[in-house]
């Protein structure tokens, strides 16, 4: 019997490895990348690539330093890097982006034990760091038309002007000042569709999120509830960040609760709060509640006791 050697898990290998899933997410994020380059110029690509690279490096350095198995090939760091880059305007100083990347990977993810052990979405952790440490840089939105004019906090969300049909198209196509990944809704939706088709994400969270956001925005008296769906990173958040496997609930019921909660809090912060966008905070607040949501919605295994 002592000659039997048990190999290292996983023993069942499926095609659905983390790498596969992350690769799909990266592909889904590409249309938005293309759009951001078109709208904001080459620097958008530069920021995205640097961000991803720094994230991967941070993860590699940490794992080498602590003599852990190197997991950069699962591409989760790349996804985090891209998402962080999508949260900044094109004029963001590179060193600040790097600080956020390092923080997101090392503090929010690796310190807790790496992928699967974090309770907060790393990209959002990075975003909050930037929001409070580099406030002016992250709110200086360069308007794309000239590529040079800097409009501070003059995104559609912050200004909420009289929006008509023309503006709807502007918002949808993203031809306005804002952050890299949030402006071209069309591109994001294409990516989201890809993820849904590939069954990487389930529709519950995004649908409940956006649906609740719509209803609550209207209920709280926001200026333009429908258009609020296209502003402030709601689409990016709903499809790409709130759906993160590690930090969202496991069951479908849980996902619905999660989505509704996010929508509610986003609407509340947007209408009543100081910050022009509530997506980030709503998702991380719901992240905190995930252990409770899971507890409430997980069904007992057959024959098992609590």
């Amino acid at each position: 019997m002592s000659n039997l050697i048990v190999g290292v898990s996983p023993h069942i290998r499926s095609k659905n490895s983390t790498q596969r899933i992350m690769l799909d997410v990266i592909i889904a994020l590409c249309p938005a990348l293309i759009a951001s380059v078109v709208i904001y110029g080459f620097r958008a690509l530069l920021l995205t690539v640097i961000s991803a690279a720094v994230c991967v490096c941070s993860e590699w350095v940490w794992e080498k330093g602590f003599k852990k198995p190197v997991t950069i090939l699962d591409l989760s760091a790349v996804v985090t890097g891209i998402l962080i880059a999508y949260n900044v305007p094109v004029g963001m100083p590179i060193w600040q982006l790097i600080v956020a990347d390092v923080f997101a990977i090392i503090v929010v993810k690796m310190l807790f034990g790496g992928l699967g052990c974090n309770f907060m979405n790393p990209a959002l952790g990075g975003r909050i760091l930037m929001m409070f440490s580099f406030t002016s840089s992250i709110t200086t939105y360069t308007y794309p038309a000239n590529g040079i004019d800097a409009l501070s906090s003059a995104t559609p969300l912050a200004v909420q002007p009289e929006l008509g049909w023309n503006s709807f198209m502007t918002l949808f196509l993203g031809n306005h000042g804002g952050v890299l990944g949030e402006t071209c809704i069309l591109a994001l939706l294409i990516g989201a569709a890809y993820l849904l088709i590939r069954r990487v994400i389930k529709p519950w969270i995004p649908l409940c999120y956006l649906g609740t956001l719509l209803v609550c925005s209207w209920a709280f008296g926001a200026e333009n509830p429908v258009l609020s769906l296209f502003m402030g990173g709601a689409v990016l958040g709903a499809f790409f960040m709130a759906t993160d496997y590690v930090t969202s609930p496991v069951t479908n019921k849980g996902k619905i609760i999660f989505g509704v909660g996010c929508g509610l809090i986003t609407a509340a912060i947007r209408v009543f709060g100081n910050y022009a966008e509530g997506v980030t905070f709503s998702i991380i607040i719901m992240n905190l509640l995930v252990p409770y949501i899971d507890d409430l919605t997980l069904t007992k295994p057959m024959g098992g006791t609590k």
Binding site: V107, V108, M120, A268, I269, F281, I285, L288
Partner: peptide, 27 residues
């Protein structure tokens, strides 16, 4: 980091979430 330190880091992240509430009371 086991035990207290990681708990403190978690507290740090938790406090970050509460920073989103500023300004809400008045409005």
């Amino acid at each position: 980091f086991e035990g207290l330190p990681i708990t403190l880091v978690a507290a740090a992240l938790t406090s970050m979430t509460f920073m989103g509430f500023t300004g809400m009371a008045e409005k």
